[in-house]
């Protein structure tokens, strides 16, 4: 079976859940080989990659890769496409994943399909486009298919193998080092699950009224072990940090359950949550367009409804 190259999505030693989803998807297409850029691939991360079926982990850990965004990764990926001739390359639909994939596609003369939600063994890709209203099946017909997979579309299924690690050296060209990362600003994310990966997301919008109001949203989220999301109105107002924004220019989420509180449902917000499996809405305006997406909705004041809901959940657990 040919190799399928998977670009690991990680933050230091912390492997993102989507990496396990990518490896799971790769198993249907060939033998998963993981490319790990930068530091953080220690014994436990290696074992965790093996738990999902990664046979080999190629590590490029150098200052060239860590200190410059995107371009070095694309160079390494393109050179591996040349030497390994994998059946396909799978990367996450994140900013880095898409851009590394895009640049490698140009370098290697390969077609690229973004935002896959499923990949069939014959490399036919399923996408949900136009806010989930249309399902498209397509296929790369030139070079090695490069496919970016949306987080939370494929479930990660363990299949234990012993992954071997191989450190590979790489000469990164000057042209790939034109941009330097001078500082990584990490905003504390706390104990809640990662927004893009969470199975349940509880979001708040302008209706939450202020930073303090997010207390009731967080309490509900914690009762469901959920991630907290926010509309742009809430992040712009500074009530909640920017990286929790859901929508066109925020995160795209596709959880099993999305609870929208005090959010009107602007098209840019929907673009980031429309493919959620079950949507619950709390909004005091019965005309709010977000109700169009609701499986279950309550017209009412979120400050009455949400705490009551949290209380009920806590009691029933």
């Amino acid at each position: 079976m040919s190799d399928v190259l998977v670009l690991a999505e990680h933050h230091g030693t912390e492997v993102r859940k989507v990496t396990f989803e990518l490896i799971t998807a790769a198993r249907d297409l060939g033998t998963p080989v993981v490319l790990w850029l930068g530091s953080g691939c220690d014994d436990s991360t290696l074992a965790s990659l093996g738990n999902f079926g990664a046979t080999k982990v190629l590590v490029v850990d150098s200052a060239e890769v860590s200190d410059h965004p995107v371009a070095p990764g694309a160079e390494i990926l393109a050179s591996l496409i040349g030497t390994m001739q994998p059946a396909a390359v799978l990367v996450a639909s994140s900013a880095d994943g898409k851009e590394i994939g895009a640049r490698a596609a140009i370098k290697s003369n390969c077609g690229i399909i973004t935002d896959a939600v499923a990949i069939a063994p014959d490399l036919t890709v399923t996408q949900n486009v136009f806010g989930g209203s249309t399902i498209v099946h397509s296929k790369v017909n030139h070079g090695t298919p490069i496919i970016t997979l949306r987080p939370n579309s494929v479930s990660a299924v363990p299949e234990s193998v012993t992954a071997v690690i191989e450190h590979i050296s790489s000469d990164i060209s000057d042209g790939a080092q034109l941009v330097s990362i001078v500082n990584r600003n990490v905003v504390e994310k706390g104990a809640r699950p990662e927004l893009a990966e969470a199975d349940v997301v509880v979001s708040g919008g302008r209706g939450v009224g202020g930073a303090e109001g997010f207390g009731v949203i967080e309490a509900l989220a914690d009762s469901l072990n959920a991630a907290v999301g926010a509309s742009r109105a809430a992040t712009d107002a500074g009530w909640y940090p920017h990286q929790y924004q859901v929508g066109q220019t925020g995160k795209t989420v596709s959880p099993s359950l999305y609870i929208a509180n005090g959010i009107s449902g602007a098209i840019q917000h929907r673009a980031g949550m429309q493919t959620s499996k079950v949507v619950i809405v709390v909004n005091k305006d019965p005309e709010a367009p977000i109700f169009e997406l609701a499986d279950y909705g309550v017209v009412g004041d979120l400050f009455a409804v949400v705490p009551q809901l949290t209380e009920e959940i806590t009691q029933r657990k």
Partner: peptide, 20 residues
């Protein structure tokens, strides 16, 4: 089309029922 109800004091409980 989903179900939309108006809160008359038990809105939160009704969501909890739906979730259950």
């Amino acid at each position: 089309a989903g179900v939309v109800v108006t809160d008359e004091g038990a809105g939160g409980t009704s969501i909890a029922d739906y979730l259950t």
